[in-house]
Amino acid sequence: MLKVEHLTKVYPNGTVALKDVSFTVNDGEFLVIIGLSGSGKSTLLRCINRLIDPTEGRILLDDADVTKASSGDLRQLRRHIGMVFQQFNLVKRSSVMTNVLSGRLGYVNPFLSLAGIWSRADRDRALKALDRVGIKDKAYERADALSGGQQQRVGIARTLMQEPRLILADEPVASLDPVLSHSILQYLEQLNKEGITVLCSLHFLDLVHRYATRVIALKDGVKVFEGLPKEINRAKFKEIYGEEAQEVRATTVEEG
């Protein structure tokens, strides 16, 4: 469903974040991107919904060229691509409900949304999304009154409002403790099983082994590995993370 071809990103200050990266994501995959901090994982994910404009290369979502889309077309494309962030990126002062409803902005009449008017259907959809992630009772609390794990669940609920076909998750559990990590990733896994393709960057290898159907690895903006999680052996690990790297486990909890 997603084809990334020869993607290169050079920032104005000369940093080369991505160098000629190509890969394909198939329908229904849980593709995990690994690599050190600064290896280009976040840039890659942001190029796919063009929060960052790539310097060169093409990104095809089904047959639509994301890289060439006009701003109107891009908004249409973005509706189908959900995104979950490491820092949750909720509006802290707004209610949980408003944060979740904002996920629907790509669909609604802008004049009504700007006035803060939401249809009954969208409100019900938001409550349902919150119910799915188990925090329906928090709907009318301020977002910053919630714990980190709960905030990330709001982030997922916001994404569900888009009825996405693809979810980009940028280190979704890096700000959470290990037990919560599993709970969040299990929600993503559940969505994945229901047919939403997931593209997720992760730090911890044990999480990769547990959730990924396929893995690509980036090092200094270059794709250095593409394959199944079990193919990452000791040698590959050293290649991706450098000679001095030691594997750290996120947790020993297997099933939540």
Binding site: L51, R79, R104, R158
Partner: peptide, 14 residues
Amino acid sequence: DAGPIEAVAATGAN
């Protein structure tokens, strides 16, 4: 905080 801007833009909002 720039995070929410990114997040809302990513939903397809104008």
